[in-house]
Design a protein around this nucleic acid. Structure first.
Lengths: 168, 168
DNA sequence: AACTTTGTACAGTATAAACTGTACGTAAAA
DNA sequence: TTTTACGTACAGTTTATACTGTACAAAGTT
């Protein structure tokens, strides 16, 4: 009875935290996998995770690989244990938030660059030869591109403003 | 030839900007719809958008509704025009970034609250009656919940640090 | 060496999301 | 009023995603 109740609470915590992890662009299944692993605290095998997640071992295998690739989970070694063991990284904020911020900054600066290149193309091709109807569209395109670049600069600035916080 | 080239550039810009819009959790199709509308600058009808998007009118209809619901697009009225006209809001940063920040802050504070409630449940149910094996699990759960709450506080703090920027 | 066990690739299946076309209510035009 | 045009609800279809189970390679055990 109390046994069961504790299991319920455990489950509640996992579900709640999985939602948080999902917010960082991680799929529901993998988010829950991470949550299970994180809340467990100790290293787990694929079979244990498969049990806890209620999904096949294949799902866990590929899911774990993605999480490892994203540097959120690491494989640990323990003497005398044959199976692979995995453990969630404890530094939640550092791992999640910093990666997230960098993802935004990278994407936005890359896209800003693309827009600038397109802007150049427009300049080179059309600053001489443009009849009436065309030149009007070209003008609006210029305006739009400028606004979009400003937009990206604002985004970049916003995310750069976030300072990494030291925490466990 | 130059006609066609301009169309190509137009298309490049749309594609590039659609990627940006997708980053704000908007589906690819709706993101492109917004990009088309934004770059066009002038109000468009459903049929025009359907043409430009290359998808059926139904898709545009539902897509536009979602964008309107998210306050990114507004219906405009023009004398003598029978069809509905829609226009993308020009205030990119204000509309996208502020909504996005608030979404994060709302979600994280809500989840933090849930975790605190679960923490209370744990306290009430288990501070007296806990045998050995159980009490160990309860302890780790406490540690985890505390860490998760700290995590949420850091997220909340980070997003609140972003100041809204005034721009077109 | 033969025999187990473990992790993952792959193919097939189930579930979910996106899209199309028809049908219909509503409102403008004749 | 009748007719035409517009927007959207809905059902059906296509396409993408998530998942399962088998099969196999690699490593461990006897």
């Amino acid at each position: 009875m109390s046994e069961n109740q504790l299991e319920n609470i455990h489950n509640l915590i996992v579900s709640e935290f999985a939602k948080t992890v999902e917010m960082f662009d991680i799929s529901p299944s993998e988010a829950r996998l991470f949550a299970i692993l994180y809340i467990e605290g100790t290293p787990m095998t694929l079979d244990q995770m498969s049990d806890a997640l209620g999904k096949s071992k294949t799902v866990v295998s590929t899911g774990i690989r993605n999480l490892v690739d994203q540097n959120l989970v690491e494989r640990v070694w323990r003497k005398g244990v044959r199976k692979d063991l995995y453990m969630a990284d404890a530094h939640l904020y550092r791992k999640f938030m910093n990666t997230y911020i960098h993802k935004w900054i990278d994407a936005t600066s890359r896209q800003k660059q693309s827009l600038k290149e397109i802007e150049l193309m427009l300049k080179e091709d059309f600053h001489t030869n443009s009849n009436g109807a065309e030149s009007k569209e070209i003008d609006t395109l210029y305006t739009r591109i400028k606004d979009m670049i400003t937009f990206h600069q604002s985004i970049e600035h916003a995310f750069k403003e976030i300072k990494p916080i030291k925490q466990s």
